[in-house]
Amino acid sequence: MSTATSMTTSASSRTYVEARDVATAVAAMSAGARPIAGGTDLVVGARHGKAPLPAALVGIHRIPGLADVAPTDGGGLRLGALVTHATLMADPTVLASYPGLADASAIVGSHATRANGTLGGNVMNSSPAMDTGAPLLCHGGVAVLVGPAGERRVALADLWTGPGRSTAAPDELLVAVELDAPPADGASGSSYVRLQYRRQMEIAIVGAGAVVTLGADGTVTGAKVAITALAPVIHRVAEAEAALVGTDGGFEAAKAAGAAAAAAARPISDVRGSADYRRAMAAVITRRAVLTAVRRARGESVPVPASDTTFGS
């Protein structure tokens, strides 16, 4: 272990402003400042030596109106960028119609991480291991970005391009993520499950989210499956979804979806697990996520977080 070369910028070049509205934040970002919300990624990343803290920072944590959870005109849900994980895991609408998102937020870090870490920070950090990504994708998440030229909307699938990389410009502020309305016809359920060695304070080694819709006869009429920490970006797995539609959503169908997820995975080996293990776990975790979503679609209660309740299943 030799001493790393200095990771710090010189103190005199550092600046900080606090924005109390979106326009101020965007102006500061246009001038080169990096937004900071809960800081649980940005500051912690710097402490880890991942990247030094940017010299210019703009605090966005107290911008009014960005911490709301509200219905959209289309019957979906609009989640302000500053909504915290603590809010998401306890919000009645999220628990009722988007439980997979609650599954994810409920297992982020510790209660301090959840009290400060925001949805916007989670999304904009663009980590392939972040937990809300898979359920957001499955629920049709769209990022609402505001830049100097105004507002634009980008599907999350088109936002993330690699670890820490996105198609958002450095001067675009995420103000909200909007989710699809739950399907009008038929019952639906969602879930997110991750492989975890400890029950708290984990980083996803493998994760999977699912949204399943059932017809009146219990047949799967719609399925969305996304996998986490198994590729440079969190992404949906069309083959897994296809393996579910038209089935009864039972164990065999879920297993087939799991196999498809494993086939689609491009895992790496590191201290947290070998690529072989991760691939095998992709099948197991996806299967559990699908089965949980199906159970919820059938009206069964599966407590949040599903990672705990599906242990050993």
């Binding site: 606090e18 800081g39 912690v44 402490r47 920072l57 301090a112 009290a115």
Partner: peptide
């Protein structure tokens, strides 16, 4: 009132 890991929270944000 929120629990915060103060080692990773900037003092300026707590102004």
């Amino acid at each position: 009132g929120r629990p915060v890991n103060s080692c990773s929270y900037l003092a300026v944000q707590a102004d």
